[in-house]
Simulated scan of single mutants.
Amino acid sequence: MLSCDQQAELAAALCATAETLGHALSASAAELMAEDLAEYGMEQIATALRACRKELTGKLTLAAILQRVQAADGRPDPNEAWALALAASDEFDSVVLTDEIQLALGAARPILDAGDKVGARMSFLSAYQRQVDTARREGKPVNWALSPGFDQQRRVMAVEEAGRLGRLAAPVVEEYRARLTHEPITQDGAAIAGLITGKSAMPSPEVRERLQEIKQSVLATQAEREQRRSDGIAKRREAFEHNRKLQLEALEQLKERRA
């Protein structure tokens, strides 16, 4: 959240950017725009403003700034997200996914398991967009994590590929690699340990079914936790707006008494 001084600095930058695009932006409008952008970092906003100066041919708008701020957060577009989700639905494959992809896949999986790929895609895209919109509105940074499959070689490959794409930091890649190449303690535990090791054994159908249930339970728990977090943020935002309204009313009353 930007401080009051940073918001004032941002308002000045907005006015300057609007001027370079050939129009004037009032101080009050710039202040409102700065307030709406306050949940993002100054570096993100500065990058978006530079893009606006280079790309816009019309007036500077809040929507144009937000579009560029959000596009730079590292989240894949819906179609790419769906392709990653499909790969993750294969229990043998390992894929690095964002939190939003995992939550949306959890919502669409029952439809996908029923064989309705078209319906699953529609459900996924809708859920994914909602999750992304919520995360961006709350200023939540993108988070990539490994969804492991049974194919032992694909796990390390998926992590290394994510590192090359900049989705996982180098220390995280090294940590994953160390975990994924660790030998299981006993042969009996190899099938389950295979989810986090580099040399797994093929589990029996019963174990595979149980591991799938565990994976779905984790996704459901993540979705529930995310919903509770969103509800809490909404309540705090509502309380903040209520207090702000009371403060503005008190300020107006003070102005009237002084007049």
Rank of each mutant, 00 (worst) to 15 (best):
C15I: 15
Q153I: 05
L66D: 03
A24L: 11
A108K: 01
I214G: 08
A13C: 05
G198V: 14
L21K: 04
R121Y: 00
G163P: 07
A51V: 11
G58C: 09
E224Y: 02
Q247D: 02
E249T: 10
A18L: 05
D36F: 15
Q131T: 12
A145L: 15
R229L: 11
D113L: 08
C4F: 14
C15A: 13
G74K: 05
A158I: 01
A145I: 14
A107Y: 03
Q44C: 09
Q6P: 11
F124C: 06
A29Q: 04
I233D: 06
R136E: 05
P205V: 00
S230C: 08
L49E: 10
A29F: 01
P205T: 07
E183F: 02
M1K: 07
E174D: 15
Q227A: 10
G232W: 06
N243R: 13
I196Y: 13
A83W: 05
P171I: 14
D116C: 08
Q153S: 13
D133E: 12
N243S: 15
A250K: 11
R154W: 12
R109V: 00
I192G: 05
L168A: 02
H23R: 09
R121L: 00
E213W: 06
L62N: 01
A63S: 11
R177W: 03
V172I: 09
G139Q: 01
H182T: 13
L49Q: 10
E249D: 11
T134Q: 09
A27V: 07
V118A: 07
L10N: 00
D188V: 03
M202D: 01
L146V: 01
Q102M: 07
L165Y: 02
A107G: 00
T186E: 00
L84G: 01
R155I: 08
R137E: 10
K59V: 06
E209G: 15
A170G: 00
S26A: 10
S200K: 09
A190T: 08
A191R: 03
P76W: 05
Q247E: 05
R75D: 03
E91Q: 14
Q102R: 06
F92H: 08
V207K: 00
A34S: 13
E161T: 02
Q212F: 14
V132K: 00
R164K: 11
A250R: 04
Q222F: 06
Q153E: 13
S94H: 07
P141C: 03
R137H: 13
L2G: 06
L105H: 04
L211N: 02
G119Y: 04
P148S: 02
T221F: 13
T134A: 13
S230G: 09
T17C: 06
I192M: 14
Q216L: 01
Q6H: 06
R109N: 04
P110R: 03
